[in-house]
Design a protein around this nucleic acid. Structure first.
Length: 481
DNA sequence: TCTGGGGTCCTAGGACCC
DNA sequence: TCTGGGGTCCTAGGACCC
């Protein structure tokens, strides 16, 4: 792709997105600080409303710090079903501008206007397109969007950042370096705290400073790929295309526990459950993968990973579980585990459910060759699960995991983790008499609900017994992103 | 009661191959 | 019979992004 002369790359970013959806749906929270994130002792802030940002609350801040900075905020778990629905509507709006839309997350996307049917993409015309888009999005969703447009992705994104909140900035072609060079190196994609520190030691603070360094110097300092790309970005060269189809490379599940876990049987049960979730998501997306990875974070926050690659792809829960548990055995968990994760990578679209594998996937046997060293490379996927294993029989050579396997089913994971409270602050509920509302708080066998919706005025608060049969939770995921 | 969850990309070293 | 030089695959870890 040749360099653009029109500001035809558009970047859209929804303002304080999760918090904005909460304020939309919970009228009593409009104009008040709202913080969405993990509510447990180890949670972090996902999104803070602008009212909460006034108190210094930021994304990724530990929730404990957010609570002390802004004790009067509403602290809510996410409602990802609602966020996904709003996101879908927004993405549909973007598709009216161009078929070439690249979503970056639920609340962010690039659009290549040059791939759409616009005969004028001058800065003035693009401003009009952007303002109409912002207005349509607000009309359709009641949340506000900031829009940037420029001749490249980097500049478009910088423009939308400048536009926040609820604004529009188009960077005029020809003025890119005037905008870019005075800014902190941190605005460049790929420059985080570590890279910023390294260049700061050479006195490099701004993008303009960075542009005075040669590519060779940057490669020496930051490595081949990073140095080369930063050298280009600092000079305003960014011809990365907007790309709508990006195949996923891995699927993973992880969980940080409220308290460190040492009990081996519980760790094993957790790994098994996570492996099943990963397998479900693999199947749902029509993928299978060759590499299974176990991730563990220790009490001191050191993070370890162990992985193994199969000769062929799998999406079988039993297979993924077995390998993940084997990998867990390689890690010293005795001093306590704060996070566990299971992932599968090396994905292919290959459809797993042929005759061979469907017979065996319910009771996968041992595979003696999981090294991926090529010896078994010609075997068909599924063939390596031909072995039989009776439940509860110990597995020779993998120290103890057989015994674990026999007992893990006895463990009530949620009870062991003290996760028995069904009412999570922020979640939607409906009462047979009072109608729809949301959980304000819960504990001591009670739950407090505020009865209001996006279309009502601020509503009344009532408290019920936690097991009140008149109170129900519609299917609404509070799972995190 | 410092530090989430789901991702992507890169690097470095060793094995292996030609 | 002094030790080349790519490539590719795999593993582990780290930086970064939203």
């Amino acid at each position: 792709m040749t360099a653009r002369t029109d500001p035809s790359v558009l970047h859209l970013d929804l303002d304080a997105f999760f918090a904005a959806v909460e304020q939309r749906d919970k009228p009593s929270l409009r104009g008040r600080p709202v913080i969405v994130g993990g509510l447990g002792p180890r949670g972090v802030v996902s999104t803070a409303s602008y009212e909460a940002r006034d108190f210094g609350v930021r994304s990724a801040m530990p929730m404990s710090e957010a609570r002390s900075r802004c004790p009067n905020a509403a602290f809510l778990a996410g409602r990802f079903g609602a966020y996904r629905a709003v996101s879908r509507t927004v993405m549909e709006q973007l598709h009216t501008l161009s078929p070439l839309v690249e979503p970056l997350s639920l609340d962010e996307a690039f659009v290549d206007l040059a791939a759409g049917e616009h005969d004028d993409l001058s800065a003035t015309a693009v401003r009009g397109i952007g303002e109409r888009l912002r207005s349509n999005i607000h009309a359709a969703t009641s949340v506000t969007a900031s829009v940037g447009a420029a001749t490249s992705k980097t500049l478009a994104k910088i423009a939308s950042e400048k536009a926040k909140p609820d604004g529009l900035v188009v960077i005029e072609p020809g003025t890119e370096l005037d905008v870019l060079h005075p800014m902190s190196v941190r605005v460049l994609p790929g420059v985080g705290p570590a890279t910023a520190d390294r260049v700061a030691r050479l006195g490099i603070k701004t993008v303009g400073d960075l542009a005075t360094m040669s590519e060779h110097e940057l490669v020496d300092l930051l490595g081949e790929a990073h140095g080369r790309s930063l050298s280009r970005l600092a000079r305003g060269y960014d011809d990365r295309p907007v790309s709508s189809e990006r195949a996923s490379k891995s699927i993973s599940v992880e969980d940080t526990f409220d308290h460190d876990i040492t009990e081996p049987a519980l760790l094993t049960a957790l790994v098994n459950r996570m492996a099943s979730k990963v397998a479900e998501r693999l199947a749902a997306s029509g993928h299978s993968g060759r590499t299974v990875t176990l991730k563990a974070r220790l009490h001191d926050f050191t993070t370890l990973s162990r992985s193994v690659t199969l000769p062929g792809p799998t999406d079988a829960a039993r297979e993924i579980s077995r390998l993940a548990v084997q990998l867990l055995d390689e890690i010293d968990t005795s001093s306590g585990i704060r996070l566990l994760g299971v992932g599968v990578s090396g994905l292919s679209d290959w459809v797993q459910h042929d005759l061979l594998s469907s017979v065996d996937t319910d009771d996968a046997g041992r595979s003696d060759d999981v090294s991926g060293n090529g010896e078994a490379g010609e075997r068909e996927p599924g063939e390596h699960v031909a072995g039989e294993r009776r439940p509860g029989v110990g597995e020779p050579g993998v120290g103890g995991s057989g015994e674990r396997g026999a007992r893990e089913r006895d463990i009530d994971i949620d009870a062991a983790l003290h996760r028995q409270h069904p009412w999570v602050p922020g979640m939607d509920v409906v009462h047979t008499q009072y109608g729809p509302g949301w959980v304000w708080g819960s504990g001591l066998g009670r739950v407090t609900v505020r009865f209001e919706t996006a279309d009502t005025p601020p509503g009344p608060v009532r408290t019920f017994a936690a097991d009140d049969p008149d109170l129900a939770a519609p299917d609404n995921s509070t799972t995190s992103e």
